[in-house]
């Protein structure tokens, strides 16, 4: 028995034969809290995971018009951004409650296996870095925390030079920002970029363009939340 990471209520398991013969992973959220989170499924934009009836949503059409060739092959997100998710992200990222990342682990790993492990081979995982200052302030990088949950984790090969909080900007400002990243070493394998939230996709595309310009064949995005 353990406690729910969000509401601290005890989680009581219904014992079954399965528990005796196989390894059943402990759930970290109680059923009530789990049901508050909304998994993304059904009809989605093939490019950015947003719920939409079109094959490509308007945002992604804008990106491919603007950039000519979109550096990001596709983005996969796990959850949609509802009220509960906003609260959880705030407590996790801004208050610094690192343990909350384990609340996302089961689905985050499962969706990763379904989408990537079956299709790609010989890839590397690159968490989106934070700037030195922000990292010092928070004590940990939330993208790195997510990447650690995945198999084949390794520290990031990207560096972030300066960073203003994206969340404070308007949509237009976000799409116009300069590329804040620097590459430490070039790679020639497919890359999966990991981040916490995909809102306009600017951050991921900056990183993707940099990687592609330096000889990377394909760049995917894997994010926890589609904002």
């Amino acid at each position: 028995m353990n406690d729910c990471l969000w509401c601290n209520q005890a989680i009581i398991y219904q014992p079954s034969w399965r528990h005796l013969f196989t390894f059943v992973e402990r759930t970290t959220l109680c059923d009530d809290c789990q049901s508050e989170l909304e998994l993304l499924n059904g009809k989605r934009c093939v490019k950015c995971s947003r719920k939409s009836d079109m094959e490509r949503c308007l945002d992604c059409q804008y990106w491919s018009e603007k950039l000519g060739k979109d550096p990001l092959t596709a983005n996969i997100s796990v959850y949609s951004y509802n009220e509960r998710m906003r609260e959880m992200i705030a407590k996790w990222k801004y208050r610094g409650d690192y343990e909350l990342v384990y609340a996302f682990r089961p689905m985050f790993v499962k969706v990763f296996k379904n989408h990537f492990l079956t299709q790609l081979k010989n890839f590397i995982i690159v968490p989106i870095p934070l700037s030195e200052m922000r990292l010092h302030e928070r004590g940990f990088n939330q993208a790195d925390a997510l990447a650690r949950l995945l198999p084949y984790y390794q520290p990031s090969i990207l560096k972030r030079l300066h960073s203003e909080k994206q969340a404070k900007k308007t949509r237009y400002e976000r799409m116009q920002t300069k590329n804040p990243f620097k590459l430490v070493e070039p790679i020639n394998k497919p890359v999966i970029l990991v981040d916490d939230i995909y809102t306009t996709g600017t951050t991921l595309r900056h990183a993707a363009r940099l990687l592609k310009n330096n000889g990377c064949p394909e760049v995917y995005g894997y994010t926890l939340v589609r904002g």
Partner: peptide, 11 residues
Amino acid sequence: RSLFGMYPCSR
């Protein structure tokens, strides 16, 4: 105990 956590500090 359940209200203590661990985090890898980057500092």
